[in-house]
Computed example of a mutant assay.
Amino acid sequence: MAELNQIDLQALTKGDKRTWDAFVLAAAPLINAVVRRTLTSYRVGEDDVMDAAQDVFVRLCAQDFRLLKTYDPARAGLPTWLSVVARSCAIDHMRRRRQATEPIDDVPEAFLGVEDRHVEKLKIPEGLLTARQVLILRYLYDEERDVMEVARLLSVDAQTIRSTHHKALLRLRAHFREEDPGDRG
C-alpha cells in the first residue's frame, strides 16, 4: 500500500488507473475515519458512512479531477487537504439526504399553515452591493450552495467567498438598520 505523500498527483489527475487504485488504497482509511467522525453527531448507520466516503472519491474525480487539481502542496499536506474535503463532502451528503416525510394528505390542514410561513424575498436596493457580492449571495442563499462549491465555480479561494459574503452582510445590516424606524430611540 502506497503512502499518500508518495502518490504521483500528475499521473493521478491525468486518469492513470494504477495511480488511482493506489491513491484509493492509501486515502481510504483517512477518508473513512474523517467521514465517520464527522457523521457521529448525525447518528447514522455504517451504510451512510460508506456512502458519504464514496461521495468523497466521486467528488475528487468528477469533472476530469477538477477538485483534485485544486490541491496546492504549498498550502497544506495532502492528508490535511483530503481531511478538509472529506469533512465537507460528509456534511454535504447529510444535507442532501432525504428525511422521512409524511404524505401531505395525512397532515391536518391546521398544521400546514402554508400562507403563514410564506416569507417574501428580501429586495436589495440597486447599487448597495457590488455585482460580485450579489452573485455570491445568490449562490449561497438562492441556490443553497456551500462556500467551497461557490469558490470552485468562481475559481477563487474559499476565504475570498467568506470575506465577500461577510462584507455584503455588513452592508445589508447597516442599510436596513438605518431604514428601520423601530431602531430609533
Rank of each mutant, 00 (worst) to 15 (best):
Q63M: 10
R75A: 13
A2M: 04
L137A: 00
P73W: 09
L140E: 03
G182I: 01
F176A: 10
V156G: 09
L169H: 11
E3S: 06
Y71L: 13
Q133C: 01
T19Y: 01
F111D: 11
A100D: 00
K167S: 06
Y139P: 02
F65P: 11
R43F: 11
A168Q: 05
T19R: 04
Q6E: 06
E178Y: 01
L154C: 09
D48T: 07
A174M: 07
D105R: 10
L122I: 07
D142E: 10
Q6C: 05
R43H: 13
S83Y: 00
L9V: 10
E144N: 03
R37C: 12
A22W: 00
E102H: 03
T40Q: 10
L4V: 11
C61A: 02
R171H: 15
Y141R: 08
L140P: 00
H118P: 02
D116Y: 13
P103Q: 09
R162W: 02
S41K: 13
A86D: 03
V156P: 10
R97C: 10
L67Y: 06
A90F: 00
D64T: 15
R75W: 07
T13I: 12
D55P: 06
R66K: 15
C89P: 00
R95F: 15
T70C: 14
R171E: 15
K17M: 02
A74C: 15
A33L: 12
D21W: 08
E109Y: 07
E149M: 11
Q6W: 07
E46V: 08
V58Q: 13
E179D: 12
A151H: 04
Q10F: 11
R184Y: 01
E109K: 05
V147D: 06
D157L: 02
Q54E: 08
Y71E: 07
A33N: 15
V85Y: 01
G127R: 01
E102N: 02
R138K: 07
I161L: 11
P29H: 01
H93E: 02
R87I: 09
L39S: 12
D55R: 06
R43N: 13
E115A: 08
G185H: 01
V24P: 02
Q54K: 14
L30Y: 00
D72F: 15
R96V: 05
V119H: 06
